[in-house]
């Protein structure tokens, strides 16, 4: 077992080499960043158009929605930047190139995910931070030291929820090889996390809260900052939900890695 410090040092070394390699394709970086910028603002565009017609959405104002959306953009960034290799898992599994990850004296998930550091995701992170600052100034949220630390904890947990959902979906590749449909579904669900969960009822709210808890990626945790007075106790459990989900995902990954025998190609 290597220590955490050693892993962090290794991670920086791997990414430094990766970024040097990517720097050959400067125009790709610029065009991809523009694409990322537009795609990350798509759902916000929907909200903006909706608020041209109605003054509020289930009691939430446009600026509150911007805050939730900014929280969402920051929360999904670690998944985009650090875990983007999840999308290629199905190719590696199909082509048999996944075998190489078994032969290094490193944690396999660490080694696999470290192979890609998605630079274009940084655009999303920066846009999200800018929007969050803008919205919290407009909403006069006062940031005490306690609330800032709460923000970091909430973001950390929300990011783990999102990472867990995507990585777990990509693990389907170990059993059905082509995990694209599963991943595509998980990816689509991600877009619903900034919607106010209060507009849903019955099965939908239950699913988004307990089954595939995308509500915890943005809507529930941002209530801690927007309307701290009427937060349900469920929200305070969200840090544990993030860690718990990641543990389950890691267990699925380990299962998959152990049962994978190659496709014969």
């Amino acid at each position: 077992m290597r220590s955490l410090r050693e892993y962090i040092r290794l991670y920086f070394m791997i990414e430094a080499q990766y970024i040097k390699g990517r720097m050959q394709y400067r125009s790709d970086f610029i065009i991809s960043s523009v694409g990322m910028f537009f795609s990350s603002l798509a759902t916000l565009g929907i909200f903006w158009v909706i608020f041209d017609t109605v003054p509020n959405l289930a009691g939430w104002s446009l600026m509150e929605m911007v805050f939730i959306y900014a929280f969402y953009m920051i929360a999904i960034s670690p998944m985009q930047i650090l875990f983007d290799h999840a999308w290629q898992l199905r190719y590696h599994v199909q082509q048999g190139t996944f075998l190489k990850y078994y032969f290094r004296p490193l944690n396999m998930m660490f080694y696999y995910m470290s192979e890609i550091f998605d630079l274009k995701g940084l655009t999303q992170l920066v846009t999200g931070i800018a929007l969050l600052i803008y919205a919290s100034i407009q909403l006069h949220i006062d940031w005490s030291l306690w609330r800032i630390s709460l923000l970091f904890i909430a973001l950390f947990s929300a990011a783990l929820v999102q990472i867990s959902i995507i990585v777990a979906a990509s693990c389907a590749a170990f059993w059905v090889v082509n995990s694209y449909p599963v991943l595509g579904l998980a990816w689509k669900l991600r877009e619903f996390s900034p919607y106010p969960m209060s507009i849903f009822d019955g099965a939908f709210r239950f699913t988004f809260t307990y089954v595939i808890p995308i509500g915890f990626v943005a809507f529930y945790p941002s209530q801690l900052f927007l309307r701290p007075q009427d937060v349900s106790s469920l929200v305070y459990f969200s840090p544990m939900i993030g860690v718990g989900l990641f543990a389950i995902t890691y267990w699925i990954w380990t299962k998959g890695v152990n049962s994978y025998t190659g496709t014969g190609s």
Binding site: D28, I30, I31, S32, S33, G35, F38, S39, A42, K120
Partner: peptide, 13 residues
Amino acid sequence: SESVWGLSTTKDI
């Protein structure tokens, strides 16, 4: 251009 991701994503959106 070898960078289709950005172009296609922007177009799709």
